Simulated assay, not measured.
Amino acid sequence: MSTNNQLVNRKRFSNSLRNDLAIEFDKLHNKTQIPKSKLLDEAIELLLEKRNHPIPKD
């Protein structure tokens, strides 16, 4: 892997969404211009809090 493509503070992963969620996720990204990775960070943080799973802070 080239050094230009390495992530330092992030981990690449692949997954899938229900079609309706993917469409709304794209709409939210386009409306807010917030990067999808940042929106996913926020969503996962909220899910972990909802499930009472502590989030380690660096």
Rank of each mutant, 00 (worst) to 15 (best):
L28H: 10
P54R: 06
D41N: 09
I34S: 02
N19F: 13
L7N: 01
K57D: 06
K27N: 15
N5G: 10
M1E: 10
K36Q: 06
K31A: 13
N30A: 15
L39R: 00
K36C: 00
D58A: 04
H29A: 14
K31P: 00
L28V: 14
I55E: 03
V8I: 15
A43I: 14
E24W: 08
L47V: 08
K57W: 07
S16C: 10
I23H: 10
S37I: 04
N15C: 14
S16D: 04
S14V: 04
H53T: 06
E24D: 11
S37K: 10
D41F: 11
I44L: 01
S37A: 04
D58P: 14
H29V: 13
P35T: 05
N15S: 14
K50V: 01
D41K: 09
Q6D: 03
K11G: 05
E42F: 15
R51N: 08
N52L: 08
E42A: 15
P35I: 06
P35E: 04
L39A: 02
I23E: 13
P35M: 03
N19P: 14
S37H: 07
L17M: 07
P54E: 01
K57H: 07
L47G: 09
D26C: 09
A22D: 12
K31F: 05
N5A: 12
L47W: 13
E45S: 07
N5L: 08
I23L: 15
R10I: 01
S2I: 06
D20I: 03
K36I: 02
S2Y: 05
L48V: 10
S37W: 01
N30W: 12
N9G: 03
D26L: 12
Q6C: 08
K31T: 12
R12P: 00
T32E: 09
R51I: 05
N5Y: 02
L46I: 14
A43K: 12
L28K: 13
L17E: 00
L17K: 02
A43Q: 11
S16A: 11
R18Y: 08
R10P: 00
K27W: 08
T3M: 15
F13G: 02
N5V: 01
D26I: 14
L48Q: 02
L46F: 05
Q6S: 11
A22C: 08
E42Q: 15
I55T: 01
A22I: 05
T3D: 13
Q33T: 11
N5T: 06
K50F: 07
L28I: 14
Q6F: 01
R12F: 00
I44W: 00
N15T: 14
L7K: 03
I23P: 07
F13L: 09
I23C: 10
P35F: 06
D26M: 09
K27G: 13
N4G: 10
E49S: 14
K38P: 05
D41I: 02
D20Y: 04
N19T: 15
R12A: 02
A43N: 08
K11Y: 03
I34V: 09
L47C: 13
K31Y: 11
K27S: 14
S16E: 01
K11S: 08
N15I: 11
I23F: 08
